[in-house]
Amino acid sequence: MSVLDFDYMLGLVPILLSYLPLTLGMAMAGMVLALALACGLAVIRVLRIPGLNGITLLFISFFRGTPLLVQLFLFYYGLPQVLSFLTQINGITATIMGLTLHFSAYMAESIRAAIVGVDRSQTEAALSIGMTNAQLMRRIVLPQATRVAVPTLMNYFIDMIKATSLAFTLGVTELMGATQKEAAGSFLYFEAFITVAVIYWGIVELLAWCQRRLEWRLNEAYRR
């Protein structure tokens, strides 16, 4: 077994990091869109809006019940064959779409649970002093639900960053795709993939640190 080629690995780092903006960009776009969609789905589930509730359940069931890779292939290779206006869809768009739909299904359930988890008696207290439903949601329920949901949502974001690597299978040259190309040129597969692994790991650890800071702040009201 040969010794690791550290010089190659160090040289690889700046090259790979230049693809980081695309990786993080897809993850952030996916996160923002998924969060918005998930909030909508969660509200439909909490209020049990007739009709929409059933559709939401089906949506969540499908996007949680099938692998993300299958969904990405479906959007990128499959849908353009049946929906002609999608023929122009590029790998990046298809990835963001897939991440959004896939993760919103998971996030909707955690947001719903967080909303339902806010002590019912506080809802009654807010109503008893004459608040409207909207005021009650905005001032009492959502701030508390956020605190409960944030740790799980941050975990989904971390998951989503790693899931962007699947975009490589749609021909997108992001962090993973770039690594694959570099490795194919140098034949130093182990060095290349261990380098990209450390980069992903570093990003996730950085986020985990941010998450702990955020949770500390959100827990302010609950420390004795």
């Binding site: 002590d119 008696s121 506080q122 009654e124 207290a125 008893s128 009492i140 508390q144 605190r147």
Partner: peptide, 10 residues
């Protein structure tokens, strides 16, 4: 309320 029902975030 019997169980106070204070707003926990305030």
């Amino acid at each position: 309320f019997q169980n106070y029902a204070l707003f926990a975030n305030k």
